[in-house]
Design a protein around this nucleic acid. Structure first.
Lengths: 349, 349
DNA sequence: TGACAAAATTGGAACGTTCCAATTAATGTT
DNA sequence: AACATTAATTGGAACGTTCCAATTTTGTCA
């Protein structure tokens, strides 16, 4: 064993067969007799042989590396961590391994990552694109026949598979709920207007307002980074306008948590004093105080879905992707002042 | 561009040089004239050439794949997500890419992951071992000269580099602090006695008690899974003993959060009614209500450190590892009843 | 200008695997 | 027992790169 890992030829010598036969055994071919297979497998065990997947990939014309690239924009956001875990589950049980990296919301770094992954010959890519990603960034991948699944956020103009949550319906449900509680001055907080996700969610917000005859007021829409800090900033600005809002739908849970922080800093208790709704249902949402009412998208399930979408595309070599929209539902907890009994809460979860 | 990615030979033909020259350019050799380099680079750009790292790795005797394997036991725990981000930072700027996977605390799956990673020719591995990992599981890696860094938890008997936080000193500080606040019945909650981490932390607990002449009482040590649910369970049992504790040091932040949940379920407010200290300082600790007093280990910094340790070992081909213990400090927040002013809090953070 | 050193370039061979066509072994049929 | 079939096995060649030794080009100086 000592120096230099053993190769298929070493195994062949040890088992008294040819390297071709060893290769056949390795791929589980049925063309090899049972007792030679046993001999070979014994040799493999004895020599501590480990398969060189790089060499195999090199030889194989179709370049099946069994590597899937995964790029998320922020791994420290538990939404994306969960998503990655979901992807890993199905990827792994299909015999693939994942290259997982975080672009940290930086398109240049994201581009580097894509290049690096291509160099390693990934058989597919799942990406939650960084803000500012262009369709052109993904073009070369698609052009060289590497399936791509864009998840969570979309990239307008890119001809690849897309997996998005139903942003419009989700925010619409949330807004409906607030209106049902009697709120009329409802703010929309967080995010930037130049992103597709923002556009879809604000559309849901407007639709709900219009359906109930509540006037849309641009002053109630406050942009900010889609982060906890951004939420603090947004609620600060929202509370400074003349006719104050009494409730807010937030771009995502991170913003919602920031909004809660900002409210407390002004001696307002989220829930009783001001209704807050998030989006994503990250794992902390349930445990936060107050437990966050939010739109649940099941990140892990979404990850599994994205992975299945990708695998399907890898296996059927059909190049053009499909767009999937995953449904979404409002989970009512305690951050809107409407305190349900524990029993009722469990039912909605 | 169309079908089949272009190769070094295509570039050579297009630039009117030999493939060897192209290879030289690719590795940035100084032996190639400036204008030929320019010609080659132009051809590379024109043909949309992408480097085949697998082929290169195959050829290179030393097998520098520029892939680092990372295995954590639970990616959804933000401590490990942060750790992974820290690793990724330095790995990436050193031109490596990371294979990141979660073992989900399952040693069998962890073994599969290690095999898969070896097949892909990783140049090193950073692992937060799943519970029950044996030294033998890591042996073959070390034997074939692949550097391994074990982080966070250790594997007794494994001859590899180890990066641990100073568990004993951390818990000792925490316990000292509680004693200083006047507590005498202090519980130690969460974890299993058969793990090394548990052993070290409980040692810190005992040391502190002894130093202040407080008797150690085995009834105050309650084992449970090191999770939020485990914390709920542990505090339940701790409160049922005759001479109740008034404070608890917890194995980690997850347990501490569970303890807070359990206290609330019994109408006790964490902080004023019962002091709680965690370990890790996960990102939510600061934002929780009450903000959690905990032992801070800076997971991201620890990740960076682990990566540097690994890179050092990859570059200097010295096979035997070193053990590094990262220091740790108590961050006082609101979960022990000692309410500091906002100003004072900031100073300790 | 010729000789010589230094600089720049180049053609194979090799890395460990899979594929193909070809060979050899085993089985069945009359 | 001789043949036809089928089942098992096997030697190259190839994948895209790097390395080595060898060759060609360029530059320098007498």
């Amino acid at each position: 064993m000592g120096e230099g890992r053993s190769t298929v030829i070493d195994i062949a010598r040890a088992a008294g067969v040819s390297k071709s036969t060893v290769s056949l055994v390795l791929q589980g071919s049925s063309a090899v007799k049972e007792d030679t297979r046993a001999k070979v497998q014994a040799a493999i065990r004895d020599l501590g042989y480990i398969y060189n997947r790089g060499a195999a990939t090199l030889r194989q014309a179709n370049s099946k590396s069994r590597i899937v690239g995964v790029i998320v924009n922020d791994l420290t956001n538990s939404f994306f961590a969960e998503l990655a875990v979901g992807i890993d589950m199905v990827i792994q049980s299909a015999g693939y391994v994942q290259f997982l990296s975080s672009s940290a919301e930086n398109p240049d770094r994201q581009l580097e990552l894509i290049v690096s992954m291509r160099e390693h010959g990934i058989s597919g890519l799942i990406i939650c694109p960084a803000r500012g990603t262009q369709a052109a960034d993904l073009k070369p991948l698609a052009a060289s026949g590497i399936p791509v699944v864009v998840a969570v956020r979309n990239v307008p103009g890119a001809k690849v598979s897309t997996l998005m949550s139903d942003n419009q319906a989700g925010i619409r449900q949330a807004t409906d709920y607030l209106i049902g509680l009697g709120h009329r001055r409802i703010a929309f907080l967080g995010g930037f207007a130049d992103t597709a996700v923002f556009g879809e969610r604000i559309a849901g917000y407007r639709t709900a307002l219009e359906a109930h005859g509540v006037a849309f007021d641009l002053a109630l829409v406050v942009s900010s980074p889609p982060s906890r800090a951004g939420g603090v900033e947004a609620i600060g600005r929202a509370l400074s306008i003349t006719e104050r809002p009494t409730a807010a739908v937030c771009l995502n849970d991170a913003v919602a948590f920031g909004v809660c922080d900002g409210l407390r800093a002004r001696k307002l208790e989220p829930g009783p004093d001001f209704a807050v709704i998030g989006f994503d249902d990250v794992i902390e949402a349930r445990a936060a105080v107050p437990a966050l009412t939010t739109v649940s998208v099941d990140p892990q399930g979404m990850g599994r879905r994205a992975a299945n979408l990708l695998l399907k595309q890898i296996n059927s070599n059909n190049p053009d992707g499909e767009a999937v929209i995953t449904s979404v539902r409002l989970v009512v907890r305690d951050s809107c002042g409407a305190r349900l009994t524990h029993r009722q809460q469990e039912l909605t979860i």
